[in-house]
Design a protein around this nucleic acid. Structure first.
Lengths: 277, 277
DNA sequence: TTGACAAATGACCAATCAGTCATTAGTATA
DNA sequence: TATACTAATGACTGATTGGTCATTTGTCAA
């Protein structure tokens, strides 16, 4: 196991117990059995560690669920499989899930909040895609409300899984939530979250840039940056804009890479906008 | 406004923005326009302030909702009225609601966590009482699941109200959630949270305010209020708690006197609880 | 054995924290 | 005006924080 991984695992455990702020770098290094200096050889700050943890586990969680939803053929069981994937992933990475569920405190810096918001949007898109696939036009009036209901179900029941030490039957839980979701999808009629409201909330920035302008800006940015991840992400996204051939999850991940770095955040938004995500 | 109230209001605003840990006593006193020493004349520690805030607003929130549920006669509109009360209370005390929704971080000490857990149970009881009243035996298999669904709905939609600066139509929201809740209550059949599981999680719980504590609070309130009706009602109820001798109708009337005044609503709720009404 | 280089250390720093207390300001009574 | 008292102040303390860096340790090839 690399030193970076060792630190991440030690930190995750402590963060889940105490939260980000209440866990000192000292504690992390003691728990990992290394010195404070060694920590700063792997991460240039505590913030970078937190960022790394969130990126790592969020992408893992999202790709877990995305894969299940994408690979499942029968629409009949899809809701059930979705909830199963989500709760099993929560159980597998319970330390991270604890942080994800409760630590939305504004203690975090602006950058982190926006990052979490972006991941939240990714999850929204997975849920929305699933619901549209199963119910199509039937839920045109309630699709955005349904996203919120699904997330609400997951949130409340996650508390049971994460914060109480009771053996639970996730199969029954997933079946129960699939039944509830289906009931709402098939019979609920009142619209609260309109298309307009949803987009007001989720896409506050909208600057129109042409494709060519954007490609030129990306080219320039590729020259500017040093980080190889950023360079590659930008190159791949450039290809995607010229000729789309990557899966949405990959594209979204690449954009998140950009959003990690303040210098690339803006261009990340523009690319996202251009690719209609 | 008393110094204590001034500090609580200043602190609440900052806590809502930054969280408990990230807000220093220094910041609070600067924001309130007083010195650090003056803070410690009103509160013996930062923890005492946080405890006071949670007690004050939680009781306010709970008694608001409880009163609406108890006083509403027509079962048909009850769910709607419940959601209306909850969301309006959230909007009224949005700073506290923000803290309540997100700050469940374990940064808090054990005492606080258990306190929040107890308040959560009070809310559960209000919701359960309401659901039982409307649906009775019909939901015997799903009543505990329904509590979690209702709380999940409130949680997700609260995000919209609290963290985005968009004008929202709470009437439509409450109607929409009442419809959804009714759908689940009438058609959902799968049981996940059994009676046994529910009680495993929520170990038996008793009145969290002792008689002596309550009497002390009443004494204090008697000093505070000007209105002679309130003073007399409080005095009579104090006697009733020490030695019951009034008829139930009179007691109920006295409590109603208290509930009419915002400043006494909370203590009214506690007295009601203590006298087993 | 030596020398060169990277890996790792922990004493140290400035900043910030909750909480204290000697001092001062303000006010009411004599 | 003088006295007595409370309310309020803010410089201070000791503890803790994230982060640094001169120093030591470990590991090679020569």
């Amino acid at each position: 196991m690399s030193k970076k991984q060792l630190i991440m695992e030690s930190a995750l455990e402590l963060f889940a117990q105490q939260g980000f702020d209440a866990t000192s770098v000292q504690q992390i290094t003691e728990h990992a059995g290394i010195s404070k200096g060694a920590f700063y050889l792997s991460f240039k700050s505590k913030d970078e560690l937190i960022n790394g943890l969130i990126d790592h586990f969020m992408l893992s969680l999202i790709s877990d669920i995305d894969q299940v939803v994408k690979n499942h053929e029968k629409d009949a069981d899809l809701l059930y499989e979705f909830y199963q994937a989500a709760f099993h992933s929560f159980q597998k990475h319970s330390d991270f899930a604890k942080i994800f569920i409760k630590e939305q405190s504004k203690t975090l810096n602006e950058e982190l909040i926006s990052k979490i918001h972006q991941y939240d949007k990714l999850i929204d898109n997975i849920i929305l895609g699933m619901l549209d696939r199963i119910y199509g036009e039937e839920i045109s009036q309630t699709r955005y409300d349904l996203i919120y209901c699904v997330k609400g179900f997951i949130h409340t029941y996650s508390h049971l899984i994460l914060f109480f030490d009771v053996p639970l039957d996730l199969h029954t839980l997933s079946r129960s939530l699939a039944e509830k979701t289906a009931l709402l999808a098939e019979h609920s009629e009142t619209t609260f979250i309109t298309e307009e409201l949803y987009h007001t909330i989720n896409e506050p920035f909208h600057v129109h840039v042409t494709k060519d302008q954007l490609l030129e800006m990306m080219e320039q940015k590729i020259e500017e940056v040093d980080d190889s991840t950023l360079k590659e992400s930008l190159n791949l996204l450039k290809q995607q804009i010229i000729e789309p051939n990557l899966s949405p999850a990959i594209v979204k991940g690449l954009i998140l890479n950009l959003n990690n770095h303040p210098a690339c955040k803006q261009i990340g938004y523009l690319i996202q906008d251009c690719l209609d995500l």
